[in-house]
């Protein structure tokens, strides 16, 4: 569970989003939405201690993030950044095995049976076992994203933060990634995931957390958020909601005739 109390985000003197208060229960899949530059990445980084926040508190499963050690933090939360990797010697299994860092004592360099089981389970969950011996840099964007998710799964952290995991992916691969994340949330992992595609977020998330200019606008179930006028105030353009045959709402920018 993630509890955020009156969190203010800033980079240097630039204020991003202020007074964020929200609770994300265990096993919930929350999509993080908002225009470019609003502070989504900074928010995710703040929740795993990579960005220090001037005011506010974050509690991970009841523990205050600001007093947790780096090691203890890694047991609670896994963060998937969007930057790429340039070490062309790394194999897929090497990358996934790195997720076990916090579980291994410093004087043991070999993998324990627990490490091996976690690595193999993570590879299996993202269907990358046949790629274990491949060089990471030879993979496609979708395969790489699956490897990063497997690394986070191997970390066995109950909270998973992802920064645009479906960016640059085609619709089929994006669908597979989000389906996988939803499966993980159903299995008990709390997931907070920055996504740009509103309909993709609505199709998979339990709730959508929306940032607007310098403030958090709402955190609501998809149908409630898409039907309201928060999207217009966040993105500055009119939105047209459309009801699908299955009763779910989708939204598109309204075009003037």
């Amino acid at each position: 569970m993630i509890e955020i109390r009156h969190l203010d985000l800033a980079i240097g003197k630039r204020r991003l989003v202020g007074d964020i208060s929200v609770t994300i229960p265990r096993g919930e899949f929350v999509a993080l939405l908002g225009p470019n530059g609003v502070g989504k990445t900074t928010f995710l980084r703040s929740l795993c201690g990579l960005h220090s926040v001037p005011t506010g508190r974050v509690y991970l499963d009841g523990e205050d993030l600001s007093v947790m050690s780096i090691h203890a933090r890694a047991h609670k939360v896994a963060y998937l950044a969007t930057d790429d990797l340039f070490d062309d010697a790394l194999l897929v299994r090497d990358v996934i095995a790195s997720g076990r860092y916090a579980h291994r004592v410093w004087w043991r360099w070999d993998e324990s049976p627990d490490d091996r089981a976690a690595i193999e389970a993570a590879m299996d969950a993202v269907r990358m076992t046949p790629f274990a011996g491949r060089r990471f840099t030879t993979l496609s964007s979708g395969e790489r994203q699956r490897v990063w998710i497997a690394m986070a799964l191997a970390q066995e952290a109950p909270i998973l933060l992802l920064d645009e995991p479906t960016g640059h992916l085609d619709v089929r691969v994006a669908d597979a990634i989000l389906t996988l994340l939803r499966e993980r949330s159903r299995a008990g992992t709390t997931i907070l995931c920055a996504i740009h595609d509103l309909n993709e977020a609505a199709a998979f998330a339990d709730r959508m957390l929306l940032f607007g200019c310098e403030r958090m606008l709402t955190c609501a179930p998809p149908d409630e958020l898409l039907a309201g006028d928060h999207l217009q105030s966040a993105y500055g353009i009119a939105m047209q909601p459309i009801m699908l045959a299955n009763g779910q709402l989708r939204v598109f920018p309204a075009r003037k005739a």
Binding site: R45, C48, G49, L50, I70, H71, R73, A74, H75, V77, A78, Y79, A81, D83, L85, D87, L90, D94, V95, S98, G99, Y101, A102, R104, W106, W109, Q155
Partner: peptide, 23 residues
């Protein structure tokens, strides 16, 4: 040799290494 495990994590990038638990 003592730094070999942190070094492996650092090859993934500083941010990732930090989120994996590396100081």
């Amino acid at each position: 040799v003592a730094m070999s495990r942190p070094l492996d994590a650092l090859r993934l990038g500083d941010q990732r290494a930090r989120s994996l638990g590396v100081n």
